[in-house]
Write a protein that binds this DNA or RNA. Structure first.
Lengths: 346, 346
DNA sequence: ATTTAGCAATCGCATTGAGCGACTGCTAAA
DNA sequence: TTTAGCAGTCGCTCAATGCGATTGCTAAAT
């Protein structure tokens, strides 16, 4: 992964120190400052090394008489280092417990994004991929005035409910029987298949079919309307944006925040982004300019995949390029493992 | 309502113009500027009037050589004027249609807050008050591996579902019968009553009771745990905060935003706020320092109540004191009327 | 008595320039 | 190859300056 293996050991260590220090303090790192913090070399040497690092593109100077700041490439080297010497961390056990207790996939992922945000102090996300959900079970619950509550369970514990208002009136037993019919008839099929089947059969207009199934189909036709599960993203921690590195330039801060909010708002764009980040298996880090989307120049995404049996989704963190990568990586990694475990034995 | 009725007609008109102009442009209003925009008087006269208004506390100068800016009291006078000459506006009919189509109370209010935010370009909220929800209907749906989905319908179309994992295994007919039992036994009671009843009966340990009811009660005990409906608030438009009046001082803007976000995050505080705003019937406007909470000094709340048959909730807008009150009032007013209509004939 | 015109006074704000301090890069010695 | 020393660069802060906007006041006009 490291694109410049020719970087000597010591230089890499120094680069790492610069990046780390910059992440910690948010200010350009000077040779003097670095020398004072327990390195075996003098500031002059550090200057030489830093000049070389700058020439190679790992760091840059905001202006002539300033210290060095990591470039995206510098972060990249640093992160690669982190990833190579990483050990698997585990979350506090209560987190896993909490996730395990959550009933539905939605709950799990919602909690997951929340947990990610909490632990990393960044914007956390969790995505469940667009799945051809297959139908498991359905229930009609009569409400008042002819309105009927439909509860629909599909693969992976996905539960949705909606209220429909059919023209005709249905008795309680009608509903019971209709549900039974639909359950046995369509179990295991995908939602779109079912939609198609319903349209077909209703179109045939076969009154040969017994009353019951006709009834059921009419009910079902309003039930399965527009029920496709689109890829949904859970996002947590937007408010944390406001706590973000405000130190220096409020102008810039505002602009940055706006950019992030815009991205988060347009979930579709976010989905595309996450999708793009998912092609690498396991844990991936995308840094600033490595993104496709030029609007993300100033942000990094740390993401990892999970699998819920069938397809794989992703959880991760999105934040400024200057983020605590070590923590972010640990959080995302351990949480994705946890989710895998939760889904495995459930 | 107007606390200073002694303010002469012309002065009030001028004050109104100042407030309106400041709301529109966000900059202190000078006498010259105001004179140039079609008033029948010269700038000098305006200066005199403004000096008087300042002495009375309706406007103030940010600094000596600046124009006038309304104080909270100035806004108050302006808003009172607005309220007194207000005519009832109606929403676009499609909004009502959309609300009407939403099934549950939750959906209605969620849409409502969304609509408020959209129409006012501010943070919109909708609150459903803490209600002693009464139990209507319940359904058990078996999932995989002994996990059971409970769907619970309570008053006003409130639907909640949760997944429980009882120790024992239940057959499908067990569940059906248990549901029937619970439905007939507890229908119409409040959730807390039911919780108490369950504990009591289980405590009695009467094995005299037939198997069925014992089974049902054991199921119910995990069903009704912690299911109180707390007052919930729907909030929309947080992202719009970032589009907020950034013009002048980014520093201040940031601080303001942070304050609002903090308030929104602590929903409990928000609930208290809204509760406080609800004592006046109908549409109310709270401006800056009129709030109890000193953290809201810079914000105004425009709110109106609705009733869903039993208890009354509130919808409204929260935004900076410099907001378009006329629009806000119209939006909130018409939307609360709409909600009332929707709840009335449903 | 009220409005208006004119004018001096006030004050924020943007600009400028100087001085300071923080680094760096380079050179020469260790 | 590392280190010490030093000149050079550049951003940042602060004070001074000048400009522009707006007011308050006074005196004349209505």
């Amino acid at each position: 992964m490291t694109r410049h293996p020719e970087l000597p050991e010591r230089d890499r260590r120094i680069l790492g120190a610069v990046v780390q220090a910059y992440i910690d303090h948010g200010e350009p790192i000077s040779s003097l400052w670095l020398a004072s913090r327990g390195f075996g070399v003098s500031s002059a040497t550090l200057r030489n090394v830093m000049a070389r690092l700058e020439e190679l593109g790992y760091v840059r100077q905001p202006h002539t008489s300033a210290g060095r700041v990591p470039t995206d490439m510098g972060y990249r080297s640093y992160v690669d280092q982190l990833l190579s010497e990483r050990r698997t961390a585990r979350l506090a056990p209560d987190v896993e417990e909490r996730l395990r207790r959550a009933g539905t996939v939605e709950d799990v992922l919602s909690h997951a994004s929340q947990e990610i945000s909490r632990a990393s102090h960044q914007v956390g996300f969790a995505m469940v991929p667009a799945t051809e959900a297959t139908f498991e079970h359905l229930d009609f619950v009569p409400l008042d005035l002819g309105r009927i509550l439909v509860v629909l369970v599909s693969t992976g514990g996905h539960i949705s409910h909606r209220v429909i208002e059919p023209q005709e009136a249905f008795s309680r037993t009608d509903l019971q029987q209709a549900a039974n019919f639909l359950n046995s008839e369509f179990k295991g099929h995908s939602l779109t298949e079912i939609r198609q089947a319903i349209v077909d059969r209703l179109g045939e207009d076969r009154t040969l079919y017994d009353q019951l199934s006709a009834l059921a189909l009419r009910l079902a036709s309003s039930t399965f309307e527009g029920l496709e599960r689109q890829p949904s993203v859970y996002i947590q921690g937007t408010a944390l944006l406001l706590e973000m590195a405000v130190g220096h330039d409020p102008e810039t801060t505002l602009a940055t925040m706006r950019a992030l909010v815009r991205i988060i708002e347009e979930k579709s764009r976010l989905v595309k982004l996450i999708d793009a980040c998912m092609d690498g298996n396991g844990l991936t880090v995308y840094i600033g300019s490595e993104h496709q989307d030029p609007g993300l120049q100033n942000f990094s995404v740390v993401t990892s995949t999970y699998t819920d049996g069938r397809r794989t989704g992703a959880v991760g963190i999105i934040g400024p390029t200057r983020m605590r990568y070590s923590r972010a990586i640990n959080v995302v990694d351990s949480l994705s493992r946890t989710i895998n475990r939760v889904f495995d034995n459930s």
